[in-house]
């Protein structure tokens, strides 16, 4: 099936892609989304719209993704199994496709206990792997999980996440394999700071023959302050920040820490770019679009391919 996802087109054409994240929005105004995403125009190929990230409530990823489509910026809509049962998940996937969303990223989600409503009931009706397969069945077979037929199948490029740095380390490449078997066409990883471990992980992924079956995009965090790196290490589930990164941030005065963080991120981009099977980078600067722009510039990732070029290469799964 051919899909008009621009991200898929670039990846299939062998281009090194750049994605970033829309900072979470706590507003009912569309301008709040547009204001935050505008600095990323022309800097990245697609923008993730997170789904109640860190289990904190924000504007829905479906609405934010649609607002990006309206402005001609390609979204990657995240969808977490935490907050919806299989009915609501499938309904949102169809709705997203109808609203022009062409990339979806499916995950279990950080637990509600990590968020601002820890007393909430979490759902977890199906898990992230099952959700991947449900999405592929919607698209490829035109059926709901129940088996009932759709009038017409939705079109989207199906993504998943994987954390190469969380135990059990030797199972993580197999978990990626399971996600590919369940239908993942691209992967965005957890933030890469530990390059040695990431190399080992990608080596195993290659041994399993997965590089021909899935595009792997490495996430690069842009540290803004020494305090921020401490927070990431201690508070963000599943994130490992090596002590030498923290020491490096602490070694410069606070006013120079953003510049140091950008240097660290640029070095990481260059390092992961040389790893076989890495098809792109996902730049994460929390509420710091300028940081994303500076890293993209500094790492030589600009200019991005223009839409017309991509349209001619087309592409799809």
């Amino acid at each position: 099936m051919r899909t008009p996802s621009r991200l898929a087109g670039l990846l299939h054409a062998g281009r090194f892609v750049v994605t970033a994240e829309l900072s979470s929005v706590d507003s009912g105004e569309p301008e709040a989304v547009w204001r935050r995403v505008e600095p990323l125009r022309g800097v990245v190929d697609a923008v993730n719209c997170t789904d109640n990230t860190g289990a904190h409530v924000h504007m829905s990823s479906l609405a934010a993704a649609h607002l990006l489509v309206e402005k001609g910026i390609e979204p990657i809509m995240q969808l977490a199994a935490r907050d919806r049962n299989r009915l609501a998940l499938q309904a949102d996937l169809l709705g997203a496709a109808a609203l022009g969303v062409r990339n979806i990223l499916l995950m279990s989600g950080d637990d509600v206990t990590a968020g601002d409503h820890p007393e909430a009931r979490s759902i977890y009706d199906i898990d992230s792997l099952q959700l991947l397969q449900v999405a592929r069945n919607l698209r490829d077979r035109g059926t709901y999980l129940s088996g009932r037929r759709l009038e017409s199948p939705p079109v989207f490029f199906v993504g998943a996440v994987e954390n190469p740095f969380a135990p059990p380390l030797d199972f993580r490449p197999f978990r990626l394999q399971k996600k590919v078997e369940a239908g993942a066409e691209f992967i965005q990883t957890q933030l890469v700071f530990d390059l040695a471990r990431f190399h080992a992980f990608m080596g195993r992924v290659e041994d399993l023959g997965l590089l021909e079956r899935v595009f792997v995009i490495a996430s690069i965090g842009i540290p803004r302050s020494a305090r921020g790196t401490h927070f990431m290490k201690e508070k963000v589930p599943g994130l490992s920040v090596p002590d030498d990164v923290i020491r490096r941030m602490e070694s410069v005065p606070p006013l120079q820490q953003p510049a140091e963080g950008i240097r660290i991120a640029i070095e990481l981009v260059e390092a992961v770019r040389s790893i076989r099977g890495i098809s792109g980078v996902h730049l994460i600067g929390i509420k710091w679009e300028e940081g994303v722009v500076r890293v993209a510039q500094g790492a030589g990732l600009l200019p991005r391919p223009v839409a017309e070029v991509v349209a001619t290469v087309g592409g799809g799964a």
């Binding site: 199994a81 279990s108 979490s122 898990d127 992230s128 135990p167 059990p168 199972f171 599943g238």
Partner: peptide
């Protein structure tokens, strides 16, 4: 706690414990 049937989530702690219950080992 996430009812996962297909392996560990990405939130497993460095010591192998659960994201949700820090004092318990991750089931997966």
């Amino acid at each position: 706690p996430k009812n996962l049937r297909n392996g560990p989530c990405g939130g497993v702690r460095a010591n192998g414990n659960c994201e949700v219950f820090p004092d318990r080992p991750c089931v997966w």
